[in-house]
């Protein structure tokens, strides 16, 4: 877990060229730290954020978040639905808050579980039973597929 325990920048003037990123889920804060840039899946495609981005609120879709850390390394998170907020402070830093249902580092993803989930969701969708909640099953399938694909570290999902 890349829980870079940097103190949250109170004075935003300090890190003009970095993003202050925070990823929050109902269970815990999964990431809090700085990044050079990041890319996350919004409803209508990937959104790239660089320091200085305008303030924005958007919805986050299931997908892979790619983040470039200050040391140049890349890190990934599998995100499920939620909200993304960019706060641009004039003459100062840019905060990115992602508030999502879940955010997982691909390394901790249980591949077998994801595979089972894919099968389960496909079976459900194939049943053509009117009782099933179609959007929910589709959402489950999408989540499981992304989790599997995240293992390949391919952001083009």
């Amino acid at each position: 877990m890349a829980a870079a325990a940097k103190p949250q920048a109170e004075s935003h003037g300090m890190h003009k060229n970095l993003l202050q990123v925070k990823i929050t889920t109902p269970d815990r804060v999964v990431f809090e730290g700085e990044a050079k840039s990041l890319q996350f899946p919004a409803e209508d495609g990937l959104v790239g954020i660089l320091p200085g981005h305008a303030s924005m609120i958007t919805t986050v879709d299931v997908g892979l978040l790619k983040m470039q850390l200050p040391d140049g390394k890349e890190t990934f998170f599998v995100l499920t639905r939620g909200f993304g907020e960019v706060r641009h402070h004039f003459g100062g830093g840019t905060e990115v808050h992602l508030t999502v249902d879940s955010g997982e580092n691909p390394e901790i993803i249980d591949v077998d579980r994801a595979k089972r989930a894919v099968e389960r969701a496909r079976r459900r969708l194939a049943e053509k039973d009117l009782k099933i909640d179609q959007p929910r099953a589709e959402y489950a399938l999408k989540r499981a597929l992304i989790r599997l694909q995240s293992r390949n570290r391919d952001p083009q999902v």
Partner: peptide, 10 residues
Amino acid sequence: GFQSQPLLVP
């Protein structure tokens, strides 16, 4: 908090 009205997408 916001210095300007944020963009709202979608």
